[in-house]
């Protein structure tokens, strides 16, 4: 959304325009819920985080300065609340704790080194995916369901980024603005998330 639209929207909200609020709630409901769910441990928790976020938006709308877009501002509020709740639910570790990066899945190679020869060639190459042909649409639907489960099992830092980028189709700039991280760091996390999901799909198909 263009900044000028944002300004009009925020003005309408400040003036108590109910239709504007209703439209925003509807527009962002699914994506707020989806992002919240990557930090907390249940759908019910995610719903509560979304409700709290809207309460915080109303409370803070007077202070919105338009330095970030409304969407960025909205999702920053959501992520802060979801993180706090995720820590309480022990779904995520606090960022200040001494937990190693490995716990967050941000350390080491993304493909098992045992799959390569000492010279770095594939020893155990990627397994063929028969499911990717148009004839196997049913299996494809099944995989999409499996993927949702797999995403929920990723560390929150990886899950949130892959959901924003690949499920919701945000740009890397939008993700970086919401999470307040550098693009290079975002890319590392995105890579790790995608690589883990690819590995899951490969295993799933070979067993299933």
């Amino acid at each position: 959304m263009a900044p000028s639209d944002d300004q009009a929207l925020v003005t309408a909200l400040r003036n108590g325009d109910e239709a504007t609020f209703a439209a925003l709630v509807t527009r962002y409901h699914a994506s707020l819920r989806r992002v919240a769910r990557t930090f907390v441990s249940s759908d019910a928790s995610a719903d509560e985080v979304v409700q709290d976020t809207w309460a915080a938006v109303l409370h803070g709308i007077g202070e919105f300065e338009g330095r970030a877009s409304f969407k960025t501002w909205l999702f920053r509020i959501l992520v802060n609340r979801a993180k706090t709740r995720g820590v309480r639910e022990a779904r995520i570790v606090p960022e200040s704790s001494l937990a190693s990066d490995d716990d967050a899945g941000t350390d080491g190679p993304t493909v098992d080194p045992a799959r390569f020869t000492s010279k770095g060639h594939w020893a155990s190459p990627p397994q063929r995916w028969e499911a990717m042909t148009p004839e196997s649409l049913l299996l494809r639907d099944e995989l999409v369901v499996q993927l949702q489960t797999a995403i929920a099992q990723l560390p929150a830092r990886l899950a949130s980024i892959v959901v924003m980028r690949d499920a919701l189709g945000w740009s890397s700039e939008e993700v970086c603005n919401v999470l307040e991280i550098a693009e290079t760091h975002q890319r590392v996390l995105l890579h790790r998330a995608r690589a883990r999901l690819r590995a899951m799909l490969e295993t799933y198909k070979n067993h299933g």
Partner: peptide, 28 residues
């Protein structure tokens, strides 16, 4: 496979788009 993984994750974004429950909307 990495490209296909991205496509499949995008597909999870589409099935999630269920409308907001009326009671949640009413509460807000």
């Amino acid at each position: 496979q990495m490209k296909q993984t991205v496509e499949l994750v995008a597909a999870t974004g589409k099935i999630e788009a269920e409308p907001m429950p009326d009671d949640v909307q009413a509460e807000l």
